[in-house]
Lab assay of single mutants.
Amino acid sequence: MATGGRRGAAAAPLLVAVAALLLGAAGHLYPGEVCPGMDIRNNLTRLHELENCSVIEGHLQILLMFKTRPEDFRDLSFPKLIMITDYLLLFRVYGLESLKDLFPNLTVIRGSRLFFNYALVIFEMVHLKELGLYNLMNITRGSVRIEKNNELCYLATIDWSRILDSVEDNYIVLNKDDNEECGDICPGTAKGKTNCPATVINGQFVERCWTHSHCQKVCPTICKSHGCTAEGLCCHSECLGNCSQPDDPTKCVACRNFYLDGRCVETCPPPYYHFQDWRCVNFSFCQDLHHKCKNSRRQGCHQYVIHNNKCIPECPSGYTMNSSNLLCTPCLGPCPKVCHLLEGEKTIDSVTSAQELRGCTVINGSLIINIRGGNNLAAELEANLGLIEEISGYLKIRRSYALVSLSFFRKLRLIRGETLEIGNYSFYALDNQNLRQLWDWSKHNLTITQGKLFFHYNPKLCLSEIHKMEEVSGTKGRQERNDIALKTNGDQASCENELLKFSYIRTSFDKI
């Protein structure tokens, strides 16, 4: 039985969820670079991206490699990797027998973001014989899940209580170790020597080791999670996991709180800001991140802002960003909400898709409305799209047979046209069989910064309504002859009103 693990408890099935942008060198404390989270699957090609990484700022997932063999891993080693800020997950990587050479110096898994409450997941690794993470000293947050690894031993010899604050939620089941077939031998045991430290858990006094050649490092209890030197002297209180010299914040392997210019500090002093819960960055760093993602459509890219001495992905609820200094300031009234469309555009074809934009005031991208039916549609669209004030790209209304009016965009005031449909149009209306009105132009103002209007096959939309939009939106004169079809717009509506004058002759039985 794995020490510190839980057996036999019912657990939810383990679901495996399925960018080499360097964020800056980590400095003297770390020998390499800070790398983003990685999802490495199918083959070993991307694994080489770990070569210079000291910190993975995010998670590391290595999974679904069915053609790899043990010899493929023999020359692979990433000794610079010290810390993973989120979680480490391995799933069905064939041929991998140990992690001792792959990650010989991995010391800390912070667990800032977890995989279903777990910071370390080893699942269905069919050839893994031992973990071998002999320098792993601290899992700051989260638990361990090690399950269905039929060859995995050296679990009962690990004292997880020396690595985690609590072992109650560890789930370590259905491994070879369960069948008591392992016969784990710690260093020196074969020669009758006791080389590794022994600890007591559940009444068992057991030597602690990761492999037959690597003991588990056990520091004096007084050192807590700070770690200790090879001689057993406690590291500085700002260290986490390990250090090369005692009581020196510049000799830590990793930091308990924050890293700044080669030393570990309790908090980031001005003019620095907390970033990702582990390091200090200056304003320029946060500003660069903001600008890199301002026009990016890459998933996970955030326009970072500053709030409460932190550089964070977005302002919290009730705050909006001051564009001059990136500071989050309290909103006066309802907060603006910028919604970034991942692929640059979004099609609204149902109430469900409209709900995804609920509360958005600025759309960074283009909207395509293609709704053919739905219950209580006008009210639903207004509830979900009615706060949109600005669209950076274009607005396209296409084959939306259920629409009679666009009044559900009740606050839309600006279409920038930074991206144009077919390279020309910022407003595009095609084949809307029941569209009769755009907006009530006596109450609604709309500016279209650039781009043209396109109207074709809107049989109940009168040309007068379209011409009014040209005047109000500032697009009059931009359109070419064929942009607004004269014969297919309003051709099934009563669009022309003329005053009919009647004269009559009164007659009676005795007068003409």
Score class of each variant (00 low, 15 high):
Asn202Ile: 03
Asn309Phe: 08
Cys243Tyr: 00
Val253Pro: 01
Thr229Gln: 07
Phe116Thr: 09
Gly183Lys: 09
Pro36Ile: 07
Asp288Gly: 10
Arg256Met: 08
Cys215Glu: 14
Val265Thr: 09
Pro79Leu: 03
Gly333Asn: 04
Thr189Cys: 12
Pro104Val: 01
Ala156Gln: 12
Ser324Glu: 08
Ile122Arg: 00
Gly132Asp: 04
Gln204Tyr: 03
Gly58Arg: 00
Asp72Glu: 11
Leu233Ser: 13
Cys196Asn: 03
Gly37Ser: 08
Asp165Asn: 05
Arg145Thr: 03
Ile185Asp: 07
Glu124Val: 02
Phe205Ile: 05
Arg113Leu: 09
Tyr304Lys: 08
Asn202Glu: 09
Glu168Phe: 07
Tyr304His: 03
Gly111Asp: 00
Leu50Asn: 01
Lys224Thr: 10
Thr320Met: 09
Thr85His: 04
Ile306Glu: 05
Gly32Asn: 14
Pro36Val: 05
Glu33Leu: 09
Asp169Met: 09
Lys191Tyr: 12
Ser143Asp: 09
Thr320Arg: 08
Cys328Asp: 03
Cys35Met: 00
Ala198Phe: 10
Asp247Arg: 12
Ala230Lys: 14
Thr211Gln: 12
Cys264Asp: 00
Ser77Gly: 08
Phe91Gly: 15
Asp177His: 15
Tyr30Asn: 04
Tyr154Asn: 09
Thr157Cys: 08
Phe103Thr: 01
Pro271Ser: 10
Ser317Pro: 08
Leu47Met: 06
Pro330Asn: 10
Tyr118Ile: 01
Cys239Tyr: 00
Val265Arg: 07
Ser98Ala: 10
Asn138Met: 13
Ile185Tyr: 08
Ile139Met: 10
Cys209Arg: 07
Asp159Ile: 11
Asp248Met: 04
Asn322Gln: 14
His214Trp: 14
Arg279Asn: 07
Pro31Gly: 15
Lys191Asn: 15
Leu44Asn: 04
Ile122Asp: 01
Asn135Gly: 14
Gln303Ala: 07
Ile56Ala: 00
Pro249Glu: 03
Leu44Met: 07
Asp101Glu: 13
Cys223Gln: 05
Cys215Gly: 09
Ser284Phe: 01
Cys280Trp: 00
Val218Arg: 09
Gly232Ser: 13
Met83Lys: 03
Phe78Trp: 03
Gly183Asp: 14
Asn170Trp: 03
Tyr87Pro: 02
Ile222Asn: 09
Val253Gln: 03
Gln204Ile: 03
Cys196Pro: 13
Cys219Arg: 04
Asp247Leu: 07
Asp39Lys: 08
Val305Glu: 03
His59Asp: 02
Phe66Leu: 15
Gly58Ile: 00
Phe66Tyr: 14
Glu180Trp: 05
Arg297Pro: 09
Cys53Gln: 00
Pro70Asn: 03
Leu96His: 00
Leu332Met: 13
Cys280His: 00
Leu120Glu: 00
Asp261Leu: 08
Thr107Cys: 10
Val93Lys: 00
His127Val: 01
Ser143Asn: 13
His214Glu: 09
Ala190Pro: 11
Leu29Trp: 11
Asp165Tyr: 14
Glu57Asp: 15
Leu131Gly: 01
Pro269Cys: 01
Gly262Pro: 05
Pro334Trp: 05
Leu332Gln: 13
Ile158Met: 10
His59Arg: 09
Lys129His: 12
Asp177Thr: 14
Tyr30Pro: 09
Gly132Pro: 01
Pro336Phe: 04
Gln299Ser: 03
Cys186Gly: 11
Trp210Gly: 04
Cys196Lys: 09
Ser284Asp: 02
Met38Gly: 05
Val126Gly: 04
Asn322Gly: 13
Gly37Lys: 04
Leu90Thr: 07
Ser213Gln: 14
Ser213Ile: 06
Cys311Ala: 05
Leu120Ile: 14
Asp277Tyr: 11
Leu96Thr: 01
Asn175Tyr: 05
Ile62Trp: 02
Asp288His: 07
Thr221Glu: 14
Ser77Trp: 07
Pro36Leu: 09
Arg263Met: 10
Ile109Asp: 00
Gln299Val: 07
Leu81Tyr: 00
Phe116Arg: 06
Thr189Ile: 12
Val305Ala: 12
Asp72Phe: 04
Phe115Lys: 04
Lys67Ser: 05
Leu90Val: 07
His59Phe: 02
Ile122Thr: 03
Arg141Thr: 02
Ile56Val: 05
Ser213Val: 09
Asp277Gly: 08
Gly333Val: 03
Gly262Gln: 06
Asp247Tyr: 14
Ser317Met: 09
Cys252Asp: 00
Gly32Asp: 14
Asp72Met: 15
Ser323Leu: 11
Cys293Gly: 01
Ser98Trp: 02
Cys228Arg: 02
His48Val: 12
Arg297Thr: 05
Arg256Leu: 07
Lys148Gln: 08
Ser225Leu: 08
Lys80Trp: 09
Cys219Lys: 03
Val305Cys: 07
Gly262Ala: 05
Cys215Arg: 15
Ser284Ala: 10
Glu33Ile: 06
Pro104Trp: 00
Tyr87Val: 00
Arg92Phe: 07
Thr211Asn: 12
Leu240Trp: 00
Cys331Gly: 14
Thr229Tyr: 03
Asp178Gln: 13
Leu29Val: 05
Glu181Pro: 04
Asn105Glu: 06
Phe115Leu: 11
Ile139Phe: 03
Asn282Leu: 09
Ser284His: 02
Lys191Met: 13
Pro36Phe: 10
Gly32Trp: 06
Thr329Gln: 15
Phe258Lys: 02
Pro79Val: 04
Asp75Pro: 06
Asn42Lys: 12
Leu326Phe: 14
Cys186Leu: 04
Ser143Val: 06
Ala190Cys: 06
Ile201Phe: 11
Lys176Ala: 04
Tyr304Ile: 03
Cys328Phe: 03
Cys328Ile: 02
Glu238Phe: 06
Asp165Glu: 14
Ala230Leu: 03
Asn42Asp: 10
Cys255Thr: 00
Leu326Asn: 13
Leu60Tyr: 00
Arg263Val: 07
Val218Gly: 08
Tyr273His: 11
Val55Asp: 00
Thr85Lys: 04
Leu326Cys: 05
Ser296Lys: 06
Arg141Cys: 02
Asp184Tyr: 09
Ile185Asn: 12
Pro187Ser: 06
Thr199Ser: 07
Phe116Ala: 10
Arg263His: 07
Asn170His: 06
Phe285Arg: 02
Glu124Lys: 06
Asp247Thr: 03
Asp72Arg: 02
Asp248Asn: 08
Val144Gly: 02
Tyr319Gln: 15
His290Cys: 15
Tyr273Ser: 06
Glu124Ser: 10
Ile146Thr: 01
Asn150Val: 08
Ser284Lys: 01
Leu63Pro: 00
Val200Lys: 03
Asp261Thr: 15
Ile158Leu: 12
Cys328His: 01
Asn135Cys: 05
Cys228Asp: 07
Gly318Thr: 09
Lys176Trp: 14
Ile185Gly: 14
Leu44His: 07
Gly111His: 00
Leu155Asp: 07
Lys80Thr: 05
Leu174Thr: 14
Leu327Ile: 12
Cys243Gly: 00
Asp184Phe: 15
Asn43Ser: 07
Ser284Val: 04
Lys224Pro: 08
Tyr87Gln: 00
